[in-house]
Structures are given as structure tokens and as C-alpha cells.
Design a protein around this nucleic acid. Structure first.
Lengths: 209, 209
DNA sequence: CCTACCGATCGGTAGG
DNA sequence: CCTACCGATCGGTAGG
């Protein structure tokens, strides 16, 4: 009779969050019923509601968990490489790695951007925007020293690269069959081309060898 | 008594399609009720079902209309400019113009890619893929003549550019407030940067001036 | 965490 | 194109 009484199964809440994340990312919030989440974790629908006051609250927590992941990773991404001019390329590759580590991250982000533009914009302004100057100042510095193209619009460039990375990873599953490849899967080729495009459209001159 | 009998209101069907497109694009298919579509055109829900056998059939027609638009526009996009090496840039600007002409096109495409990857992939293979070689062969020709970078992966490049264009236009509303601008709106700056990135990551050398 | 249950809303039908 | 209506499912509550 030590620890059997009424403790609410410590890991159950996390399991619900995990399955809800997966389902919201793949099917979308509206298409996912509480019952589907319950079934995925092996319980009944009302038990899900016991852990989260409402379906909306469940979504909120799922999104918040995603954002806190971002908040933790961003400093790591931005300091991913210190090898001078190649720093931005390495940061981008780290971003892609981060996105591909959990296949639901990119898809969930894209869905939230489409479904709740206002709320998501608020989250972006809160958590992502403060880091922007750190990157754009670095790009402007590169423009002054002549290694970065003069006609680059730093803010637009950064946002475009992030959009490209998120969209590519999120849609990778679909795009994977656009063309068959023998040597490797399509998504890897896309990611590699993405990194190349970001690099070659930023720095002046030809290949960095 | 000439034309009052039982003709099913010729323009009503198109009005339903138009409002359904707008609602599916902005809120998503699952979040859009037949009632909401009916209300938008000023009729009752059962009258919508009279024009389309089911909600799914309405979606099918909306998507088919979008695809037929694409099919008509693609030849025009690909022959948008004949001024030699700048041809691809002009084609891209034409693509962006096409996407921005109807704000719901990009958002609907992105939603369909997320919600129904299998079906959408089929539509892409049918309608878009046949045009791919026309672009990729042109890029490969440019690689042989030395105007296009050697390390460009033609197929990946084309898909990335299309993804970037669709995503940018679709998310433009959200991104518009990432940073305030005095001279022009954020989306225009994003589009211009997108075109620049596509150009500078494709061709060798500095600015074409 | 379960069973039993409910009001609301959904897509769709009947029948003019 | 409308009113009247229905079975199914949804999110959520009650009460253990």
C-alpha cells in the first residue's frame, strides 16, 4: 500500500502528448479526435480529458513543447560552427538535422502556420525573432568585408531559408516519389541541394573548394 | 414561362466552388462545414449538397479546378521569356505572379500536400511531372555551356524553387509581420529575395548586370 | 482510468 | 432552392 493509491500514472501524460503530436502533425488538429488519441495510447477518451482540460488545451501543450524544443536548440544551432565564413552553412545543416530528427516537428509547424496564423505569429515573435539580429548582423558584417553578396536582403534571406528547410522536411514524404533515384533517397538529395542553394546564393564567387 | 422552370441556377455552382475554395484554403477541409459554405453563398446547406453529391466530391472539384488552372498556366510559364540565360528567372517570376494572382492557390496546394499526400502525389505525377524534363534539360544544357553551376542537381533545384515559391506565398500573410518595413510590405521583399536566391544559386559568376 | 451518458453539430436524405 | 428531419460522431461531464 505504499504507492498504489491515486497517483495519475506519471508517464501517461507524456504518452498522450507524444501520440497527440504525431496525430496532429500527420492528420491535422480538426481531423484528430480525442478518441483517436486515446486509442493510440491504449486508454479511453474521457481519460485523455482527465489529463488535459480540453482538446484545445492538449493542442496548446503540444505546440508549447515544440516551441520549447526550438528555444533549447536555437543557441546550439547558432553556435554550431565557428569556422569563419562557413558558419552559416553549418548552422543550416544543424537546423536541417534538428528538423529531421523528429519527422513531426516540421509538419506540425507548417500546420500551425496555416491553421492559426495569428497565434503562431505571436509565438514566432516571442521565441524566434529575438535571435534574428544575431544572424542578420553577421550577414551584414560579411557584406562589409566583401564575402557576402551585396544584394542579399538579410532578413528575407534568413526567413526564406527557414521556410525552405521546414517545407522541404515537412513535404519530403510526398516529394520522395517525384523522381526515383538509385543511389539514395530523394529527400537526401533535396536537403543537399537546399544547403547548396542557401550557400551559393549568399556568398560571392564560385565554389569554395 | 420561357426560362423559369427547373434549370439549376447556372452560376450557383461556380459560386459554391469559389467560396469552398476560399474556405478550404484558409481554414482547411475538415474545419469547413457544408453549412459554412452555404452561408458564404447565401443559401442553405442541403442546397449545396444538391450541386455536389457529397462534401468529398466538392473538395475533389475544388482541387481539380486548381490543377486545371496549373495545366493551362504551365506552358505559358515555361515560355514566359526567351531572352536566353535569363529565361529561368523570368519563368520563376511568372510562377510567383501566378501564385499571387489568387491568394488561395498556394495555401490550398500546401494543405492538400499535407492532408492527402498520396492523392496529391498522384496529381503531381500526372500533371506536373511531364513538364519536368523541359526545365531540367535546359539546366543541363546550361551546365554544358558553362553558364549554370556544375554542382546544381537539376531535379532537386526545380522542386526546391517550387516549394519555396508556394510556401512563401502561402505563408506570406503570417510572415508579413516578422519585420515591419517602411518602404514596402514584407511579402514583396521576400518574393524579390526568393527570385534572387534562385538566380544566384543557379548561374555561375556574380551579378548578371 | 473506467462506464454511462449528454447536448451540439456534423454530413446527408426525403420530399416537395 | 427550401423545410423538416435523422443517424452518427464529436467534445466533454458525472460519478465513481
Amino acid at each position: 500500500m505504499a504507492r498504489s493509491a491515486e497517483q495519475p500514472a506519471p508517464e501517461m501524460r507524456d504518452r498522450i502528448l507524444s501520440e497527440a503530436t504525431r496525430l496532429f502533425a500527420t492528420r491535422g488538429f480538426e481531423s484528430t479526435t480525442i478518441q483517436a488519441v486515446a486509442e493510440a495510447v491504449g486508454i479511453r477518451a474521457p481519460s485523455v480529458i482527465h489529463h488535459f482540460p480540453s482538446k484545445a488545451a492538449l493542442r496548446e501543450q503540444v505546440v508549447e513543447d515544440l516551441m520549447s524544443h526550438w528555444k533549447n536548440e536555437i543557441p546550439r544551432l547558432l553556435t554550431a560552427a565557428r569556422s569563419g565564413e562557413d558558419r552559416l552553412s553549418s548552422a543550416l545543416e544543424a537546423l536541417v538535422q534538428f528538423l529531421m530528427a523528429d519527422p513531426y516537428r516540421a509538419r506540425l509547424a507548417l500546420r500551425e502556420l496555416l491553421d492559426r496564423p495569428g497565434e503562431t505569429r505571436g509565438l514566432i515573435e516571442q521565441h524566434l525573432l529575438p535571435w534574428m539580429p544575431l544572424v542578420t548582423d553577421y550577414i551584414r558584417l560579411g557584406q562589409q568585408t566583401g564575402v557576402v553578396r551585396e544584394d542579399v536582403d538579410p532578413e528575407s534571406y534568413v526567413v526564406e531559408v527557414i521556410i525552405m528547410a521546414i517545407s522541404t522536411v515537412a513535404l519530403g514524404e510526398v516529394l520522395d516519389t517525384v523522381q526515383s533515384r538509385d543511389d539514395e533517397d530523394r529527400l537526401s538529395a533535396m536537403i543537399r541541394e537546399l544547403v547548396r542553394m542557401a550557400r551559393d546564393s549568399l556568398f560571392v564567387g564560385g565554389e569554395p573548394a
